[in-house]
Design a protein around this nucleic acid. Structure first.
Lengths: 341, 341
DNA sequence: GCCCGCACTGGGAGCGCTCCCAGTGACGTG
DNA sequence: CACGTCACTGGGAGCGCTCCCAGTGCGGGC
């Protein structure tokens, strides 16, 4: 049978209330009493009943991570694995439990999330990878539940943690110009995501800083997947490019594969770079230049922010934007133009 | 303010109890009353308080997925992403919530899991990727909580779902012999996992069925990671092989990379195959022959089994073993030996 | 020596639900 | 017509905890 506060109290010769105080670390317990109670707890391996606790405290110590249905085909993108891992570690550090919500389709999404969110099972949610105008965000914000988005929201006044996608893409553009690239192609991320928009706008801004513009014919939109990068690259190779910025590493790897298939050598014939900073870009042939974003840190900050929203320390909306870093590798080591000059 | 049963009852002109019966779908409610109550619930968007419910029912509707600390460096292996996805979908279908437990190290593991498991927050757990003799399994089984392992356990009498690793590796061995391979190398999975043991034993059994044996010099153990496959392949190429079985696709991709670096052409100079059936093996150059395992199905079955353990329909230990399938692709299309003959 | 205040402790109330038992009224049977 | 039966409904009890208020005992100040 499971022990309860009352039992521990009886065994330690104190009352329920005193045991509760010890368990919750309240100071108003005489040291010797505290010690006696703690000894009993240790011996018996007592753990408070979470349901009873949260019934009265209205806190569950559980946070939810919601990833919308459209992402599932993209789940092989290492980004999500890393994000989930980061959120988990952040939760562990804070002593809260993580629940994961993925839906297979819109219907399941519509039914699943509100039910869980309203049942009071969760203290707050982190939402990621929504598309712009996603009704999910609307539904979530209409509840009183604290919420943090990973990635900049488009319309809603919600708290979020994001990386500086604009700045990263700006750096990328300047880098490609600086190594001597002339016809610069872009494999964009979906423009129905703020990430896609920010990376594209940043890239254009970076080109402008070097008095260049983006040729609309050399912009092809991908969907973050490897095959979409591959297909986009085929288009760009047909149109003629000497440098390509892929808005994600996964797409960059697809682009690299297409280049190989076409007998195009990177970086000699073509400079190529990605965005994200995943491990696979270090072992590709050649290793890819990329913009490294701090995924684990992003996740950790999202958890922290959410918990301070839950506890009321911070008011929504609050946002955090983390810096990214250009990592130069072989794939942009020699520019074709510079090689000529 | 959140509504409670009492409020709904008042609004519908019935008692708390009747509303409870409606919510729980009990038959003993007059249809017209039921309808009235359901109408009020729909209008108000009432959802029962999960904490109160589980306080009395001793069920939370939450299951845990535990992945031990040693896996984290391997988290980029698509296997875990797919498993998590599968478990999530299985949970959705069953109407339960999934909580995820990953620890960063042994200490965190020791502290995290028992606390959560004992708090009564969870109806049951799925554990995966334990190593043999893992104390985690011991700790988990010592609790009363229902438990299902993904992957065959080594010592404990616990329920599990696994794929037929032995049979898959047997098929692999026979395939490589049948295409005419002579010096067959193996990049093994860690032999402190039952998966590693089963795939190795199965491979040896397959060779024996073709009157072959495994040359101990041609067996190199990897750790499931891409770099470990790469390094193992370098060793095998030095020792001379004309076919290699890698016990995971990720390692096979690393092996392929090493082959490229050494100017070894697959499949002309060397037949290469993996195990898992991940997407990346279809886009590699060349696409890899592999043993496809049903990860999503494994996960779904694990959830099902766990829930029937929780409800008491099934007694532990119960096990499920799912079949795997050999998928032939270009990487073993022409054997070097057969090409000669 | 008395009283007040302080530090600590105990127990009642109640969180929102489920379970169970005791109604209540309609209907059928002897 | 009395009574038993059945279908349905209402409310008390209690799940294990936290919160709060009312003690209790001790020390210090007057």
């Amino acid at each position: 049978m499971r022990l309860k506060l009352e039992d521990i109290g009886r065994m330690a010769g104190v009352s329920r209330s005193t045991v509760s105080r010890v368990v919750n670390g309240e100071p108003s317990v005489r040291p010797e009493v505290r010690e006696r109670v703690e000894a009993v707890i240790r011996e018996t391996g007592y753990t408070p009943n979470a349901a009873a606790r949260s019934l009265v405290s209205n806190r569950t110590g559980v946070i939810g991570l919601v990833i919308p249905s459209r992402v599932h085909s993209l789940f092989e993108d290492p980004y999500f694995a890393r994000l989930i891992q980061g959120v988990t570690f952040g939760s562990n550090r804070a002593g809260v439990t993580l629940s994961l919500f993925l839906a297979q389709n819109e219907d399941e999404e519509r039914e699943l999330y509100p039910r869980v969110v309203e049942s009071g099972f969760i203290d707050g949610v982190i939402i990621t990878a929504t598309r712009m105008g996603d009704p999910l965000v609307e539904r979530m914000t209409s509840r009183q539940i604290p919420l943090v988005m990973v990635g900049r929201p488009d319309l809603h006044q919600v708290s979020y943690v994001d990386v500086d996608n604009r700045d990263g893409a700006r750096q990328a553009a300047r880098h490609l110009v600086d190594i001597g690239a002339d016809r610069i192609g872009v494999i964009g991320a979906p423009t129905n995501t703020t990430t896609g928009v920010d990376r594209l706008e940043g890239f254009i801004a970076g080109l402008q800083e070097r008095d260049r513009t983006l040729d609309p014919d050399l912009l092809v939109e991908g969907d973050f997947s490897e095959p979409s990068g591959h297909d986009a690259m085929q288009v760009l190779l047909d149109r003629g490019v000497d440098a390509v910025f892929a808005a994600s590493d996964t797409m960059a790897l697809g682009a690299l594969r297409a280049a190989h298939e076409h007998g195009v050598t990177v970086p000699d014939d073509l400079a190529l770079m990605g965005f994200d900073g995943f491990g696979a870009t270090t072992t590709s042939a050649p290793p890819l230049t990329t913009i490294e974003q701090p995924v684990a840190d992003t996740a950790a900050r999202a958890v922290e922010l959410l918990l301070s929203l839950v506890s009321g320390e911070v008011e929504a909306p609050t946002s955090v934007v983390l810096p990214v870093e250009l990592i130069e590798r072989t794939s942009t080591a020699r520019s074709p133009i510079r090689a000529e000059s």
